[in-house]
């Protein structure tokens, strides 16, 4: 602080007591201000550094669920990039995944165990387990997705990605 006093006019003596009180109050106020603004910056930044639960941007893949939970001849709907998708375990045990958006009017298709087909309730459109249209109004087949199984044995996740 010697530099400050160096610039101070030589005439100015030691400050009056009231002036001194004001100075300490102002310094305290400034300290509070600096600390709280620093906190207002450090807090969001430190929260930003903590990775979110989903880990990374779900651009091209999503975890549909646990492989063990998917019994043969059953299907499971899951969100994939903001749209529903379906993963199916065939009676033979293969895993297949498709976009679950019906190509007719965007209704969500479901797995029908009795015929082992994908079925849209809205207009009775049916697709085989290759995604092809079997009957009903859908003009195109369902987009097929790539299925991978990843993780510890017995605890594998079904990971679905765009081909």
């Amino acid at each position: 602080m010697s530099d400050v006093t160096r610039f101070a006019p030589s005439g100015s003596g030691s400050p009056a007591p009231s002036d001194f009180d004001r100075r300490t109050f102002l310094d305290a106020l400034l300290a509070v201000g600096f600390v709280s603004t620093a906190a207002a910056i450090v807090y969001p930044v430190s929260r930003f550094l903590v990775p979110p639960p989903s880990g990374e941007a779900a651009t091209a893949s999503a975890v549909a669920g646990k492989a063990a939970a998917l019994k043969p001849n059953s299907g499971l709907l899951f969100p994939f990039g903001g749209k529903p998708a379906i993963v199916v375990r065939t009676a033979e045990g293969d895993l297949r995944a498709f976009s679950a958006v019906c190509t007719h009017l965007d209704c969500t298709v479901q797995f029908k165990a009795d015929t082992s087909q994908l079925w849209c309730a809205c207009h009775n459109g049916t697709y085989d387990l290759g995604g092809n249209v079997v009957s009903g109004p859908p003009p195109r087949g369902l987009e097929q997705l790539v299925v991978n199984v990843r993780g510890e044995p017995g605890e594998e996740d079904v990971v679905v990605s765009r081909g």
Binding site: V4, F7, A8, P9, S12, R22, R23, L26, D27, L29, L30, V32, G33, F34, S36, T37, A39, A40
Partner: peptide, 25 residues
Amino acid sequence: ALSLGAILLVVVALGLKIRQVDRRT
């Protein structure tokens, strides 16, 4: 708004401090 409050507090305090420092030089 809270952080803005803190920022404005610093702005005001700095303004006062500047006056104080200037008066001394």
